[in-house]
Nucleic acid binder design. Structure first.
Lengths: 196, 196
DNA sequence: ACACGAATAGAACGAACGCTCTATCCAGTA
DNA sequence: TACTGGATAGAGCGTTCGTTCTATTCGTGT
């Protein structure tokens, strides 16, 4: 039988994944230790290896997938609120900047740091990160095609929208300023509008 | 008296900085050990601490500054070859993609990984990274203003040019594909042209 | 009451980490 | 020939890493 569980409590496994995702978002893969994860997740090292026999690597893959779902949810929410795709992207940059500032410029993209550290060194993690980016691009592309943009135009725009958001958020973190994201929003809207 | 040195040989200090920059570009800050640096730079641990008493942190700052100068040189070269700024950016994306592919998708931005790992954890390194981004933006802005773009337009475009290059290179690395950079080049040129 | 697997718990392992320390080498100067 | 200080050399410090291991507890079906 499946595990009986109250609606609002989450299991140990999920708590470990969320903690790992948040820690690697802020510190990256290498700087995040399993001891720290187990402590902050209020789990023991035994539990961590019970749920993730593959160790730190497997845990990182799950953390990246969690970050994938998290940001996808963020995009869906923004796309549901705004009908116009260009306006929706601008709303994204605004919300992203606000969240970033409120976290003391610490909570950037939950995938990027780990992704960069894994390039050429941890294929499973890199693959999970690639899946995430592709997932996000698909959400943007579908939003654009539903607004009447041609398939190939929407495909290319989706690439640049995600990549520019990524780069602008990185820059905003490093310079502790909302400007890069605000500028990115305006430019992306202008770029999208230029294809109408 | 200054050190006498033949034109083409480089000193131990410079060799350590270059090695550190290349290693941190590929592996990031945390995954790069001082033992590995000293071995690959053909220097001893004693020499490393002799030239960099501040240890790994100080070494990382120098490595980021080295990466700063390196990419600035790359931008200057591209801007000198192409008169038109939009064409120059496209040339940048092409060369960047080629270098990336030739390195087996390993040699991305020499600053980004270390910068992300340092956010909120190592202020000196973060500052060096911020200086690098600002330096590169200034190069782009000057190129644009020299071609007749208004100051504020050039300022904003410089932000998005650098940030989009950054995000596209990251995406190209993770997906091992030149497409993100090729698309970024086309879109940035279109965005620049839209302000003429 | 009993059994059994899932889950929890944390001690302990070898390896690697950043860094400190002392010793040695060697060119320039008196 | 002695002295000096920059540079080289590497053993060893304490700590932390990811991982393994055995033991115990918990929850549920019989």
């Amino acid at each position: 039988m499946g595990t009986m569980r109250t609606q609002h409590e989450i299991g140990t496994r999920e708590r470990i994944v969320r903690t790992t995702s948040r820690l690697m978002q802020r510190q990256g893969y290498e700087a995040t230790g399993l001891k720290q994860i187990s402590q902050e997740a209020q789990a023991t090292l035994g539990s961590v290896y019970h749920f993730f026999p593959g160790g730190k690597r497997e845990l990182a893959v799950e953390a990246v997938r969690h970050g994938d779902r998290e940001f996808a949810e963020f995009l869906r929410a923004a796309f549901d609120k705004e009908d116009d795709p260009a306006a929706a992207i601008v709303a994204c940059t605004r919300d992203l900047a606000e969240e970033l500032r409120e976290s003391g410029w610490l909570d950037g993209c939950p995938v990027t740091t780990t992704a960069l550290e894994s390039v050429g060194r941890a294929p499973e993690i890199q693959q999970a990160a690639e899946d995430a980016y592709e997932n996000w691009r698909t959400l943007v592309r579908d939003k654009l095609t539903r607004s009447g943009f041609a398939g190939d135009v929407a495909h290319d725009l989706a690439h640049t929208v995600i990549n520019t958001l990524e780069g602008a958020e990185l820059s905003a973190q490093v310079s502790q300023s909302e400007a890069p994201l605000e500028i990115a929003g305006r430019h992306l809207a202008r770029l999208i509008d230029s294809y109408r």
